[in-house]
């Protein structure tokens, strides 16, 4: 990518291309701040989905009374995502060799989470007679789907960190990335627990 800016001494042009931060630490804290803002943005988004589901469930007369219970695989999903968070917390603390293994584990757990989600809703869907229950089923799918989409999004930075940990010398910059990535996954974890609670109320 061509840079039009003149680069100030002391800043890493790949991170801070316009040299807006005098100090790399400031840049780091700004990135963390931005991530928190992103979590607020996504929190509003998930909040909207949850409110929509609750309104449809309790306000609409047309919610079907004969939907199957919560698929048991979702408990497995919850467990996997909690382990994911633990693995990432540990990875930010450990040194090279353990860190790499923990990151691989975290990646596998994330894939496992998505797999159990697909399994759960597939199973559940098979046991529903769709006719006249389309809206309810679709609403539940949207809830699961929006979260899975963000988990898929979380795989990208996780994959980059993992790739960095396996192919190159571990640097401060990669450590920053790992911390930011871990925060995002903790956020996904918290959102998932909120969604589980909602699903328990709804189903």
């Amino acid at each position: 990518m061509p840079r039009t800016g003149t680069v100030m001494a002391g800043t890493d042009p790949a991170v801070d291309p316009r040299g807006v931060f005098d100090n790399p630490d400031d840049r780091r804290s700004a990135a963390r701040f931005a991530l928190w803002l992103l979590c607020i943005v996504l929190g509003m988004l998930f909040g909207g989905v949850i409110v929509a589901l609750l309104v449809l469930r309790f306000d609409g007369a047309a919610w079907p009374s004969d939907l199957p219970r919560l698929p048991w695989q979702l408990w497995l999903s919850t467990g996997l995502l909690l382990m994911e968070s633990v693995a990432l917390v540990l990875a930010t603390r450990r040194t090279s060799s353990t860190r790499r293994r923990l990151l691989v584990l975290a990646f596998v757990l994330a894939i496992g989470f998505i797999a159990t989600q697909v399994w759960a809703w597939w199973d559940w869907h098979a046991s529903v007679d769709l006719e006249a229950r389309r809206t309810a089923v679709a609403a539940l799918w949207v809830v699961g789907g929006v979260h899975v989409a963000h988990v898929l999004g979380g795989l990208v930075p996780l994959g980059l960190v993992l790739w960095g940990a396996t192919t190159m010398e571990w640097s401060d910059r990669q450590n920053d990335r790992l911390r930011l990535t871990a925060t995002y996954w903790h956020f996904l974890d918290a959102v998932w627990i909120a969604m589980m609670l909602t699903l328990l109320i709804v189903l």
């Binding site: 943005v41 988004l45 909207g48 929509a52 449809l56 389309r134």
Partner: peptide, 27 residues
Amino acid sequence: PVLGITLALLIVERAFGIGIFNPVLGG
């Protein structure tokens, strides 16, 4: 973000014929 999710629901609703906001389909 709330607008985003609302418009996304509307796109899903219109594309796949489900009725989160459509009373005919229980919305």
